[in-house]
């Protein structure tokens, strides 16, 4: 222990250490559970029945199954499509465009749009799922406004375009977060710098590309990583809307993990899926840590 400056701290070291114990226990439990997921992934542990008690080691069998059977790779692909279109294209780009448009405008327009998109974000996942199931159903909002008035047959969107519907629902729900981050980032760009660029004769596009963008680059990176990781492991919205169906069209990795572990009861294989997900998220987080550490 190095030199401690504060006597009220040094005379109570034991008390303070004791105060940290519950937190250490909970964080320790979290690390322990992560380790457990690794251990389970080498067994054939089951949810119910004989395999729940008399499980055995199966070596790398679960991991072989990840790559030799179609389930995992299909889900990985579905997840990548879902993340790319709903998080990166949808939430980030739309959030950025909104932030760029609304920055420095009259406050009423800004407030109205903000409250509108914020409502989606604040809604609990299951309520959003219910809303979008109802909106896209045969008698729902979209059919009764855009399809039926033109004399067309009502379309069962959630059945025919399942992945597109959950993607749009997630854009609707999540854009506010990216928007909030981007508008804060844009507000932090000093006006003097933009003014100076203007005086030097930079055009509007040059100012955006060469002046503003480099300044807010760290914010863009933070935003992309956070929403990528969240969307990658996002469960409730898709599960409540489609359950992964029809067929396996919307079965992202989180749903695949749930279905294998708790519907089929293969806790061992489910653990292998979660290890694969943890590795992917871990790799993404490490990239994020490196970017945070880099001096701006």
């Amino acid at each position: 222990m190095r030199h401690q400056a504060n006597p009220w701290i040094t005379s109570n070291l034991w008390l303070l250490s004791a105060a940290m114990l519950p937190a250490i226990a909970l964080v320790g439990a979290l690390l322990y559970f992560t380790g457990w997921a690794f251990t389970f992934s080498f067994t054939d542990l089951g949810l119910t029945g004989r395999k729940a008690v008399e499980w055995s080691w199966v070596g790398l069998e679960n991991y072989e199954r990840l790559f030799t059977r179609k389930g995992f790779l299909d889900s990985l692909w579905t997840t990548i499509i879902f993340v790319f279109f709903s998080a990166i294209v949808g939430q980030s780009v739309l959030g950025f465009l909104l932030a760029a448009t609304l920055r420095g405008t009259v406050s009423t327009t800004r407030s109205v749009v903000e409250v509108c998109i914020m409502l989606g974000w604040l809604l609990p996942d299951i309520v959003a799922a219910f809303l979008w199931s109802a909106t896209t159903s045969r008698t729902g909002l979209i059919n009764s406004l855009f399809i039926v008035p033109f004399g067309l047959q009502p379309i069962n969107f959630i059945n025919d375009f399942a992945l597109a519907v959950v993607t749009i629902a997630n854009v609707w729900k999540g854009t506010a977060w990216s928007y909030l981050l981007f508008i804060a980032a844009l507000d932090s760009v000093p006006r003097e710098i933009i003014e100076a660029a203007k005086i030097d004769g930079a055009t509007r596009w040059q100012r955006a590309w060469l002046v503003v963008l480099p300044i807010i680059r760290p914010h863009i990176a933070t935003n992309l990583l956070f929403i990528t990781i969240w969307t990658f492991t996002y469960f409730p919205l898709i599960f409540a809307m489609t359950g992964g169906g029809p067929g396996r069209q919307t079965e992202t990795l989180a749903l695949f993990l749930y279905n294998q572990s708790f519907a089929r009861g293969n806790l061992g294989f489910g653990s292998a899926i979660s290890v694969a997900m943890l590795l992917i998220v871990g790799a993404l987080s490490l990239i994020y840590l490196r970017m945070l550490r880099e001096p701006k």
């Binding site: 964080v27 979290l30 690390l31 559970f33 992560t34 457990w36 997921a37 389970f40 542990l45 990781i229 990658f232 492991t233 469960f235 989180a254 993990l257 749930y258 572990s261 708790f262 806790l267 489910g270 653990s271 979660s274 290890v275 997900m277 943890l278 998220v281 993404l284 987080s285 994020y288």
Partner: peptide, 15 residues
């Protein structure tokens, strides 16, 4: 750890 997704430790938590 803050980035740790709950689905990643779902099985051990349940167990």
């Amino acid at each position: 750890l803050r980035m740790l997704p709950s689905v990643g430790v779902l099985v051990p938590l349940y167990f």
